[in-house]
């Protein structure tokens, strides 16, 4: 096999792997912001999810249970954010900042209790599996370490992320629920007069955003690597947030943006492994520079949901 094809396979493979946690979290961002609630606490929810996923997977030896608990852990912080923002009219960015402190703080607090004072978990026995692994290897359909292996033989979370992009898109644009979520994010007063329960929709959306961020965290801790540590999630939630805006608040747009950030990481790792004398730091910087340039290039910034960040007060009730 041409080494260049194999290199390409390696880059695409790592891109997919590193994009996946961002995709989950970014989808969470799409859901909450579409309902009109800013969630800058995605970072903290992801952080907590990464820990919860690794801890549960370590103790139960079941990565799937880990993934589920990560999502539920994220959803718990989503609930807190929803209580603050929806029920008590909190300043949404401030509440999000609080969630970042709380998510990370509580993850490390529990980690120290469970893992003998350490701010990292032990290595999990079983990571999220690679469901197509049986197709690759000696005497199988595809050779191992070939292009196809590198690109398509990925963790289940990768496929799940892509599937969820479709699901979120479908729900937002093709279902009753999605239409209501978007309406609440654009004009909650109008939705309210039509008997739509703005509070319930927003609670649901914010909790779901935590659920997705939790999945994103676990996609990092029990798929990309095999344990949680205190530096595992550092800014990924913020990047996912930027990707969501970059993607114009659309699931498919967020996907593309996350792949871009993932590709930069993939390229950085590839060049690092080859010892190419290109400044890796400059390369790593590129997607951020690019994001700013693209944001500047947006014409007509009306893509954000109109009611975003605004407090909805039904007044009397």
């Amino acid at each position: 096999m041409e080494p260049i094809i194999q290199d390409l396979g390696f880059i695409i493979g790592t891109t997919l792997m590193y994009s996946t946690p961002l995709i989950f979290t970014s989808l969470g961002g799409v859901i909450t912001e579409r309902s009109g609630v800013i969630n800058i606490g995605l970072e903290g929810m992801m952080y907590f999810g990464a820990f919860a996923g690794a801890a549960v997977a370590y103790f139960s030896q079941d990565p799937w249970l880990g993934l589920l608990c990560a999502a539920l852990g994220g959803a718990f912080w989503g609930l807190i954010h929803a209580i603050a923002c929806v029920s008590f009219s909190a300043e949404q960015i401030v509440s999000g900042i609080a969630i970042n402190f709380l998510g990370a703080g509580s993850a490390l607090f529990i980690s120290r209790l469970l893992f003998d004072g350490a701010t990292q978990t032990l290595t999990v026995a079983r990571k999220i599996p690679q469901p197509l692994d049986f197709l690759f290897g000696e005497g199988k359909m595809f050779a191992s370490s070939g292009f196809t292996d590198l690109v398509f033989n990925r963790f289940a979370t990768v496929y799940l992320a892509f599937f969820l992009v479709f699901v979120v898109w479908f729900v937002l644009y093709k279902t009753q629920l999605g239409m209501r979520v978007r309406a609440v994010g654009e004009n909650p007063e109008a939705a309210n007069t039509l008997g739509i329960n703005v509070t319930r929709i927003r609670y649901g959306a914010v909790i779901m955003s935590g659920f997705f961020a939790g999945l994103g965290g676990a996609a990092m801790s029990i798929a990309v690597v095999s344990r949680f540590s205190n530096t595992l999630i550092s800014g990924h939630g913020f990047i996912a947030l930027a990707a969501m805006i970059f993607g114009k608040w659309k699931p498919q747009g967020a996907l593309v943006a996350c792949l871009l950030f993932g590709a930069a990481k993939g390229l950085e790792i590839f060049l690092g492994s080859k010892g190419v004398p290109v400044a890796g730091d400059i390369l790593a910087m590129l997607p951020y520079v690019l994001t700013i340039i693209i944001l500047i290039g947006f014409v007509g910034k009306t893509t954000a949901p109109a009611a975003i960040g605004k407090i909805f007060d039904k007044g009397d009730h």
Binding site: Q176, R180, R182, E186, E189, L194
Partner: peptide, 17 residues
């Protein structure tokens, strides 16, 4: 009380789709 980026039909059926 209209949702600006929605169509006429979407606005009318909203909540009663």
């Amino acid at each position: 009380m209209l949702v600006e980026p929605f169509s006429v039909t979407e606005n009318i059926i909203l909540g009663n789709e």
